[in-house]
Design a protein around this nucleic acid. Structure first.
Lengths: 178, 178
DNA sequence: GTTATCGTTTAGAACATTCTAAACGATATA
DNA sequence: TATATCGTTTAGAATGTTCTAAACGATAAC
Protein backbone atom coordinates (compact mmCIF):
# COMPACT_ATOMS: atom_id res chain seq x y z
CA UNK A 1 0.00 0.00 0.00
CA UNK A 2 2.13 2.82 1.29
CA UNK A 3 4.98 0.41 0.78
CA UNK A 4 5.13 1.76 -2.75
CA UNK A 5 5.82 5.23 -1.44
CA UNK A 6 8.53 3.77 0.74
CA UNK A 7 10.06 1.88 -2.15
CA UNK A 8 10.09 5.02 -4.28
CA UNK A 9 11.73 7.09 -1.58
CA UNK A 10 14.35 4.47 -0.99
CA UNK A 11 15.27 4.35 -4.65
CA UNK A 12 15.40 8.13 -4.77
CA UNK A 13 17.78 8.10 -1.85
CA UNK A 14 19.91 5.36 -3.40
CA UNK A 15 20.36 7.16 -6.70
CA UNK A 16 20.80 10.53 -5.02
CA UNK A 17 23.57 9.11 -2.95
CA UNK A 18 25.19 7.52 -5.94
CA UNK A 19 25.10 10.66 -8.06
CA UNK A 20 26.44 12.65 -5.17
CA UNK A 21 29.31 10.24 -4.86
CA UNK A 22 30.13 10.64 -8.55
CA UNK A 23 30.23 14.41 -8.23
CA UNK A 24 26.97 15.11 -9.99
CA UNK A 25 25.17 16.53 -6.98
CA UNK A 26 22.56 14.78 -4.89
CA UNK A 27 19.32 15.97 -6.43
CA UNK A 28 20.57 15.11 -9.91
CA UNK A 29 20.26 11.42 -9.15
CA UNK A 30 17.11 11.98 -7.16
CA UNK A 31 15.50 13.68 -10.12
CA UNK A 32 16.48 10.83 -12.37
CA UNK A 33 14.96 8.36 -9.92
CA UNK A 34 11.67 10.26 -9.87
CA UNK A 35 11.53 10.29 -13.65
CA UNK A 36 12.64 6.68 -13.92
CA UNK A 37 9.78 5.56 -11.70
CA UNK A 38 7.21 7.72 -13.43
CA UNK A 39 5.03 6.23 -16.15
CA UNK A 40 4.48 9.63 -17.76
CA UNK A 41 6.81 12.54 -18.41
CA UNK A 42 6.83 15.11 -15.61
CA UNK A 43 6.96 18.89 -15.67
CA UNK A 44 9.48 21.04 -13.88
CA UNK A 45 6.97 22.01 -11.22
CA UNK A 46 5.96 18.41 -10.67
CA UNK A 47 9.58 17.39 -10.23
CA UNK A 48 10.14 20.21 -7.76
CA UNK A 49 7.08 19.12 -5.85
CA UNK A 50 8.09 15.48 -5.82
CA UNK A 51 11.41 16.27 -4.16
CA UNK A 52 10.27 19.24 -2.11
CA UNK A 53 12.78 21.62 -3.67
CA UNK A 54 12.43 24.79 -5.68
CA UNK A 55 11.94 25.05 -9.42
CA UNK A 56 15.21 26.90 -9.79
CA UNK A 57 17.02 24.07 -8.16
CA UNK A 58 15.44 21.57 -10.51
CA UNK A 59 16.07 23.77 -13.52
CA UNK A 60 19.81 23.61 -13.03
CA UNK A 61 19.98 19.93 -12.15
CA UNK A 62 17.80 18.84 -15.04
CA UNK A 63 20.05 20.70 -17.44
CA UNK A 64 22.96 18.56 -16.34
CA UNK A 65 20.83 15.45 -16.75
CA UNK A 66 20.02 16.50 -20.28
CA UNK A 67 23.67 17.17 -21.10
CA UNK A 68 24.55 13.72 -19.87
CA UNK A 69 21.76 12.22 -21.94
CA UNK A 70 20.05 10.85 -18.86
CA UNK A 71 16.83 12.72 -19.52
CA UNK A 72 14.92 13.80 -22.60
CA UNK A 73 12.50 16.66 -22.82
CA UNK A 74 9.14 16.17 -24.45
CA UNK A 75 6.54 18.74 -25.33
CA UNK A 76 2.78 18.43 -25.34
CA UNK A 77 0.81 20.26 -27.98
CA UNK A 78 -0.98 23.26 -26.57
CA UNK A 79 1.04 23.22 -23.38
CA UNK A 80 3.82 25.65 -22.72
CA UNK A 81 5.29 23.51 -20.01
CA UNK A 82 8.29 21.28 -20.68
CA UNK A 83 8.05 17.65 -19.69
CA UNK A 84 10.89 15.32 -18.98
CA UNK A 85 11.32 11.58 -19.19
CA UNK A 86 14.15 9.30 -18.19
CA UNK A 87 16.51 7.69 -20.65
CA UNK A 88 16.24 3.96 -20.04
CA UNK A 89 19.44 2.74 -21.67
CA UNK A 90 21.80 2.53 -18.72
CA UNK A 91 24.77 1.55 -20.80
CA UNK A 92 24.35 4.57 -23.02
CA UNK A 93 24.18 6.69 -19.90
CA UNK A 94 27.26 5.11 -18.37
CA UNK A 95 29.17 5.56 -21.58
CA UNK A 96 28.18 9.19 -21.84
CA UNK A 97 29.04 10.01 -18.26
CA UNK A 98 32.37 8.29 -18.62
CA UNK A 99 33.03 10.26 -21.77
CA UNK A 100 31.84 13.69 -20.78
CA UNK A 101 32.93 13.87 -17.19
CA UNK A 102 35.52 11.32 -16.23
CA UNK A 103 37.34 11.40 -19.54
CA UNK A 104 37.49 15.17 -19.58
CA UNK A 105 39.05 15.28 -16.15
CA UNK A 106 41.40 12.48 -17.04
CA UNK A 107 42.54 14.22 -20.19
CA UNK A 108 43.28 17.43 -18.36
CA UNK A 109 45.37 15.58 -15.82
CA UNK A 110 47.11 13.69 -18.60
CA UNK A 111 47.90 16.92 -20.38
CA UNK A 112 49.44 18.38 -17.25
CA UNK A 113 51.55 15.29 -16.76
CA UNK A 114 52.92 15.54 -20.27
CA UNK A 115 53.61 19.21 -19.77
CA UNK A 116 55.38 18.34 -16.57
CA UNK A 117 57.55 15.82 -18.37
CA UNK A 118 58.32 18.41 -20.98
CA UNK A 119 59.47 20.84 -18.31
CA UNK A 120 61.68 18.24 -16.71
CA UNK A 121 63.15 17.54 -20.12
CA UNK A 122 64.25 21.14 -20.38
CA UNK A 123 66.01 21.03 -17.04
CA UNK A 124 69.73 20.55 -17.00
CA UNK A 125 70.75 16.92 -16.87
CA UNK A 126 71.72 15.29 -13.61
CA UNK A 127 70.76 12.47 -11.28
CA UNK A 128 67.91 14.48 -9.79
CA UNK A 129 66.38 15.11 -13.17
CA UNK A 130 66.85 11.56 -14.36
CA UNK A 131 65.08 10.22 -11.32
CA UNK A 132 62.11 12.50 -11.79
CA UNK A 133 61.92 11.80 -15.49
CA UNK A 134 61.87 8.08 -14.88
CA UNK A 135 59.10 8.37 -12.35
CA UNK A 136 57.02 10.65 -14.53
CA UNK A 137 57.38 8.40 -17.52
CA UNK A 138 56.28 5.41 -15.48
CA UNK A 139 53.19 7.37 -14.56
CA UNK A 140 52.63 8.34 -18.17
CA UNK A 141 52.68 4.67 -19.17
CA UNK A 142 49.99 3.95 -16.62
CA UNK A 143 47.89 6.83 -17.90
CA UNK A 144 48.20 5.47 -21.40
CA UNK A 145 47.11 2.02 -20.36
CA UNK A 146 44.12 3.47 -18.55
CA UNK A 147 43.35 5.57 -21.58
CA UNK A 148 43.28 2.49 -23.78
CA UNK A 149 40.99 0.65 -21.43
CA UNK A 150 38.52 3.48 -21.19
CA UNK A 151 38.62 3.83 -24.95
CA UNK A 152 37.74 0.19 -25.40
CA UNK A 153 34.95 0.37 -22.88
CA UNK A 154 33.53 3.32 -24.72
CA UNK A 155 33.76 1.61 -28.09
CA UNK A 156 32.45 -1.84 -27.41
CA UNK A 157 28.85 -2.33 -26.40
CA UNK A 158 27.46 -3.80 -23.22
CA UNK A 159 26.95 -7.24 -24.77
CA UNK A 160 30.60 -7.54 -25.74
CA UNK A 161 31.66 -6.15 -22.40
CA UNK A 162 29.48 -8.72 -20.68
CA UNK A 163 30.93 -11.39 -22.91
CA UNK A 164 34.47 -10.39 -21.99
CA UNK A 165 33.53 -10.56 -18.37
CA UNK A 166 32.06 -14.00 -18.84
CA UNK A 167 35.22 -15.17 -20.56
CA UNK A 168 37.41 -13.92 -17.80
CA UNK A 169 35.24 -15.36 -15.08
CA UNK A 170 35.68 -18.89 -16.42
CA UNK A 171 39.43 -19.22 -15.96
CA UNK A 172 40.59 -21.76 -18.52
CA UNK A 173 43.48 -23.91 -17.46
CA UNK A 174 45.86 -22.60 -20.10
CA UNK A 175 45.35 -19.02 -19.15
CA UNK A 176 47.18 -18.33 -15.94
CA UNK A 177 50.61 -19.87 -15.88
CA UNK A 178 52.73 -18.10 -13.32
CA UNK B 1 67.41 24.22 -13.55
CA UNK B 2 64.32 25.65 -11.95
CA UNK B 3 62.40 23.80 -14.62
CA UNK B 4 62.57 20.83 -12.30
CA UNK B 5 60.75 22.75 -9.60
CA UNK B 6 58.16 23.70 -12.18
CA UNK B 7 57.76 20.12 -13.33
CA UNK B 8 57.33 18.94 -9.77
CA UNK B 9 54.72 21.56 -9.00
CA UNK B 10 52.81 20.75 -12.14
CA UNK B 11 52.65 17.08 -11.28
CA UNK B 12 51.58 17.90 -7.74
CA UNK B 13 48.78 19.99 -9.15
CA UNK B 14 47.78 17.30 -11.63
CA UNK B 15 47.51 14.58 -9.01
CA UNK B 16 45.89 16.88 -6.49
CA UNK B 17 43.26 17.72 -9.01
CA UNK B 18 42.71 14.11 -9.87
CA UNK B 19 42.36 12.96 -6.27
CA UNK B 20 40.01 15.83 -5.58
CA UNK B 21 37.88 14.74 -8.49
CA UNK B 22 37.71 11.22 -7.12
CA UNK B 23 36.58 12.46 -3.76
CA UNK B 24 39.80 11.84 -1.90
CA UNK B 25 40.56 15.46 -1.17
CA UNK B 26 43.10 17.66 -2.94
CA UNK B 27 46.12 17.37 -0.71
CA UNK B 28 45.82 13.59 -0.68
CA UNK B 29 46.94 13.42 -4.29
CA UNK B 30 49.39 16.24 -3.76
CA UNK B 31 51.03 14.35 -0.95
CA UNK B 32 51.30 11.26 -3.08
CA UNK B 33 52.91 13.30 -5.84
CA UNK B 34 55.51 14.69 -3.45
CA UNK B 35 56.37 11.21 -2.21
CA UNK B 36 56.32 9.75 -5.69
CA UNK B 37 58.89 12.27 -6.87
CA UNK B 38 61.09 11.88 -3.83
CA UNK B 39 64.07 9.54 -3.92
CA UNK B 40 63.98 9.05 -0.16
CA UNK B 41 61.13 8.61 2.29
CA UNK B 42 59.91 11.85 3.82
CA UNK B 43 58.81 12.74 7.33
CA UNK B 44 55.50 14.30 8.24
CA UNK B 45 57.12 17.68 8.82
CA UNK B 46 58.92 17.53 5.49
CA UNK B 47 55.68 16.74 3.71
CA UNK B 48 53.92 19.62 5.45
CA UNK B 49 56.76 21.91 4.43
CA UNK B 50 56.74 20.73 0.84
CA UNK B 51 53.07 21.61 0.41
CA UNK B 52 52.98 24.60 2.76
CA UNK B 53 50.29 23.12 4.98
CA UNK B 54 50.17 22.13 8.62
CA UNK B 55 51.28 18.83 10.10
CA UNK B 56 47.77 18.12 11.33
CA UNK B 57 46.48 18.44 7.82
CA UNK B 58 49.09 16.02 6.54
CA UNK B 59 48.49 13.62 9.40
CA UNK B 60 44.89 13.07 8.36
CA UNK B 61 45.53 12.89 4.64
CA UNK B 62 48.44 10.50 4.95
CA UNK B 63 46.29 8.14 6.98
CA UNK B 64 43.90 7.86 4.07
CA UNK B 65 46.80 7.23 1.73
CA UNK B 66 47.97 4.43 3.96
CA UNK B 67 44.51 2.89 4.13
CA UNK B 68 44.36 2.91 0.36
CA UNK B 69 47.78 1.33 0.16
CA UNK B 70 49.17 4.30 -1.74
CA UNK B 71 51.84 5.01 0.83
CA UNK B 72 53.94 2.91 3.17
CA UNK B 73 55.54 4.05 6.40
CA UNK B 74 59.15 3.29 7.09
CA UNK B 75 61.10 3.83 10.26
CA UNK B 76 64.72 4.71 10.73
CA UNK B 77 66.59 3.22 13.64
CA UNK B 78 67.22 5.76 16.35
CA UNK B 79 64.69 8.21 14.93
CA UNK B 80 61.28 8.70 16.43
CA UNK B 81 59.97 10.30 13.28
CA UNK B 82 57.86 8.33 10.84
CA UNK B 83 58.86 8.38 7.21
CA UNK B 84 56.65 7.73 4.24
CA UNK B 85 57.29 6.44 0.76
CA UNK B 86 55.02 6.06 -2.23
CA UNK B 87 53.68 2.73 -3.41
CA UNK B 88 54.81 2.41 -7.03
CA UNK B 89 52.44 -0.26 -8.29
CA UNK B 90 49.67 1.82 -9.87
CA UNK B 91 47.52 -1.15 -10.71
CA UNK B 92 47.58 -2.33 -7.13
CA UNK B 93 46.58 1.15 -6.10
CA UNK B 94 43.78 1.37 -8.63
CA UNK B 95 42.48 -2.00 -7.59
CA UNK B 96 42.51 -1.08 -3.95
CA UNK B 97 40.80 2.27 -4.46
CA UNK B 98 38.17 0.61 -6.61
CA UNK B 99 37.64 -1.98 -3.93
CA UNK B 100 37.67 0.14 -0.81
CA UNK B 101 35.91 3.24 -1.97
CA UNK B 102 33.95 2.79 -5.17
CA UNK B 103 32.85 -0.74 -4.42
CA UNK B 104 31.73 0.15 -0.92
CA UNK B 105 29.57 2.94 -2.19
CA UNK B 106 28.24 0.78 -4.98
CA UNK B 107 27.33 -2.01 -2.58
CA UNK B 108 25.44 0.34 -0.32
CA UNK B 109 23.45 1.66 -3.24
CA UNK B 110 22.83 -1.86 -4.46
CA UNK B 111 21.60 -2.91 -1.05
CA UNK B 112 19.16 -0.01 -0.95
CA UNK B 113 17.87 -0.91 -4.39
CA UNK B 114 17.19 -4.48 -3.33
CA UNK B 115 15.49 -3.26 -0.19
CA UNK B 116 13.42 -0.97 -2.34
CA UNK B 117 12.36 -3.86 -4.54
CA UNK B 118 11.48 -5.82 -1.46
CA UNK B 119 9.24 -3.00 -0.26
CA UNK B 120 7.50 -2.76 -3.59
CA UNK B 121 6.98 -6.52 -3.47
CA UNK B 122 5.04 -6.11 -0.25
CA UNK B 123 2.78 -3.49 -1.74
CA UNK B 124 -0.63 -4.56 -2.91
CA UNK B 125 -0.69 -5.65 -6.52
CA UNK B 126 -1.81 -3.29 -9.25
CA UNK B 127 -0.63 -1.59 -12.42
CA UNK B 128 1.27 1.06 -10.46
CA UNK B 129 3.19 -1.52 -8.51
CA UNK B 130 3.92 -3.67 -11.53
CA UNK B 131 5.35 -0.73 -13.40
CA UNK B 132 7.64 0.21 -10.55
CA UNK B 133 8.73 -3.38 -10.02
CA UNK B 134 9.63 -3.75 -13.66
CA UNK B 135 11.69 -0.59 -13.64
CA UNK B 136 13.46 -1.46 -10.45
CA UNK B 137 14.31 -4.93 -11.67
CA UNK B 138 15.72 -3.51 -14.88
CA UNK B 139 17.97 -1.34 -12.75
CA UNK B 140 18.94 -4.29 -10.63
CA UNK B 141 20.04 -6.18 -13.74
CA UNK B 142 22.29 -3.28 -14.67
CA UNK B 143 23.76 -3.17 -11.20
CA UNK B 144 24.50 -6.88 -11.43
CA UNK B 145 26.23 -6.49 -14.77
CA UNK B 146 28.32 -3.65 -13.40
CA UNK B 147 29.11 -5.71 -10.34
CA UNK B 148 30.40 -8.53 -12.52
CA UNK B 149 32.59 -6.21 -14.52
CA UNK B 150 34.12 -4.61 -11.47
CA UNK B 151 34.68 -8.05 -10.00
CA UNK B 152 36.54 -9.16 -13.11
CA UNK B 153 38.65 -6.04 -13.17
CA UNK B 154 39.56 -6.62 -9.56
CA UNK B 155 40.45 -10.26 -10.15
CA UNK B 156 42.45 -10.17 -13.34
CA UNK B 157 45.79 -8.43 -13.39
CA UNK B 158 46.88 -5.47 -15.47
CA UNK B 159 48.57 -7.62 -18.11
CA UNK B 160 45.42 -9.56 -18.79
CA UNK B 161 43.38 -6.41 -18.75
CA UNK B 162 45.77 -4.90 -21.25
CA UNK B 163 45.48 -8.05 -23.32
CA UNK B 164 41.70 -7.80 -23.38
CA UNK B 165 41.99 -4.22 -24.48
CA UNK B 166 44.38 -5.19 -27.23
CA UNK B 167 42.02 -7.87 -28.44
CA UNK B 168 39.10 -5.50 -28.56
CA UNK B 169 41.03 -2.82 -30.35
CA UNK B 170 41.64 -5.12 -33.31
CA UNK B 171 38.03 -5.60 -34.34
CA UNK B 172 38.48 -8.46 -36.79
CA UNK B 173 36.69 -11.61 -37.77
CA UNK B 174 38.45 -14.37 -35.89
CA UNK B 175 38.39 -12.34 -32.76
CA UNK B 176 38.81 -14.60 -29.76
CA UNK B 177 41.22 -17.42 -30.29
CA UNK B 178 44.11 -17.18 -27.93
C1' DG C 1 -2.44 46.40 -23.29
C1' DT C 2 -2.97 43.64 -19.25
C1' DT C 3 -2.56 39.55 -16.73
C1' DA C 4 -1.05 34.84 -15.86
C1' DT C 5 2.08 31.18 -16.29
C1' DC C 6 6.16 29.26 -17.74
C1' DG C 7 11.53 28.40 -17.11
C1' DT C 8 15.76 30.75 -15.99
C1' DT C 9 18.84 33.50 -13.45
C1' DT C 10 20.84 35.46 -9.28
C1' DA C 11 21.88 37.37 -4.61
C1' DG C 12 22.42 35.68 -0.58
C1' DA C 13 21.18 32.27 3.30
C1' DA C 14 22.12 27.67 5.00
C1' DC C 15 25.05 24.14 5.05
C1' DA C 16 29.26 21.26 4.45
C1' DT C 17 34.09 20.88 3.75
C1' DT C 18 38.84 21.87 4.43
C1' DC C 19 42.38 24.03 6.77
C1' DT C 20 44.89 26.20 10.71
C1' DA C 21 46.59 26.87 15.21
C1' DA C 22 46.96 25.31 19.53
C1' DA C 23 46.50 21.82 23.00
C1' DC C 24 47.53 17.28 23.99
C1' DG C 25 49.52 12.53 25.10
C1' DA C 26 53.39 9.82 24.27
C1' DT C 27 58.16 8.97 24.04
C1' DA C 28 62.88 9.95 24.13
C1' DT C 29 66.76 12.85 26.10
C1' DA C 30 69.05 15.30 29.49
C1' DT D 1 62.11 14.88 37.14
C1' DA D 2 62.22 18.35 33.76
C1' DT D 3 62.53 19.34 28.73
C1' DA D 4 62.16 18.61 23.87
C1' DT D 5 60.25 16.50 19.94
C1' DC D 6 57.16 13.64 17.78
C1' DG D 7 52.23 12.64 15.70
C1' DT D 8 47.40 13.21 16.72
C1' DT D 9 43.30 15.46 17.92
C1' DT D 10 40.09 19.34 18.03
C1' DA D 11 37.75 23.92 18.15
C1' DG D 12 36.96 27.17 15.23
C1' DA D 13 38.23 30.16 11.04
C1' DA D 14 38.21 30.24 6.07
C1' DT D 15 36.42 28.61 2.09
C1' DG D 16 33.15 26.10 -1.18
C1' DT D 17 28.96 24.14 -2.21
C1' DT D 18 24.04 23.82 -2.48
C1' DC D 19 19.69 25.58 -1.82
C1' DT D 20 15.93 29.14 -1.54
C1' DA D 21 13.31 33.08 -2.61
C1' DA D 22 12.53 36.59 -5.49
C1' DA D 23 13.20 39.06 -9.74
C1' DC D 24 13.15 38.57 -14.50
C1' DG D 25 12.21 37.84 -19.59
C1' DA D 26 9.37 35.33 -22.62
C1' DT D 27 5.13 33.65 -24.23
C1' DA D 28 0.28 32.78 -24.26
C1' DA D 29 -4.57 34.05 -22.91
C1' DC D 30 -7.72 37.38 -22.07
Amino acid sequence: MDELKLAREQLIEALGRQSGFWGLGKITGELYAVLYLSAEPLSLAELAGALGVTKGNVSIAIRLLEQLGMVRRSMRPGDRRVFFEAELDFWAIARRVLERRQKTEFNESFRMLKESISHAGNAQAGPGRDFMMERMERLQCFYEELDQIVKVILIIGPEQLARLVRIERTPPSTQYSP
